[in-house]
């Protein structure tokens, strides 16, 4: 009568299988190698870096898998992941837009360009557009101050840019994305 007849009382083996399936092999090996060591929880940040290196971002499922397999409360894991700017919690878009906010670009109006990008894409720094095409980040100096204000999209440098040029620039990448996806 005590145990519910409809469910196994220990759900760990099944949960563990699911969590292991969420993470890449070498992350699992890293976690397994350090399990039970004193202060193994101090490897949390290193583990999160590994996951992000592999998968591009830290999704809720990945964070839960790391928490469960390292046996660190999930709230602590998501607390750490949301504290550090380096960790991305959303998948990165097809094109990463990096707006230079270094001194030269800044005085040449980079902030207005950044604002226009945010308005056009409907996202803030650190976020990805709903269609998954663009991610927006800021950076400090890409070494082409002569072209200020500069925006990098993927590996390509664009500048000097005015806010007015932003829509057409985004349009050209959208067209490129459509072309690439049509090929696939």
């Amino acid at each position: 009568m005590t145990a519910c007849p409809h469910c196994p009382t220990d759900n760990w083996p099944e949960l563990e299988r699911g969590y292991r399936a969420m993470l890449p092999e070498d992350v699992l090996a890293f976690i397994d190698a350090h399990r039970g060591e004193p202060h193994s929880e101090s490897l949390l940040i290193a583990t999160l870096h590994m996951v992000q290196d592999h998968l591009g971002h830290l999704g809720p499922g990945h964070l839960e898998a790391v928490a469960q397999l390292m046996q660190i409360p999930l709230a602590k894991v998501t607390g750490v992941a949301t504290f550090y700017h380096y960790f991305r919690l959303q998948p990165r878009g097809r094109y990463l837009i990096n707006v230079c906010l270094g001194t030269a670009c800044y005085v040449k109006g980079a902030e207005k360009v950044a604002q226009k990008l945010m308005d056009e894409l409907g996202i803030h720094f650190g976020e990805t557009s709903k269609d998954g095409i663009f991610s927006l980040e800021s950076t400090r100096c890409v070494g082409t101050c002569g072209l200020a204000p500069v925006v990098m999209i993927g590996e390509e440098v664009h500048g000097p840019l005015t806010p007015g040029q932003v829509p057409a620039l985004l349009e050209s990448y959208l067209a490129r994305a459509a072309e690439e996806m049509a090929k696939v």
Partner: peptide, 10 residues
């Protein structure tokens, strides 16, 4: 009776 529940606690 009781049931195993998620999220599983750490």
């Amino acid at each position: 009776h009781y049931t195993a529940r998620t999220p599983r606690g750490i």
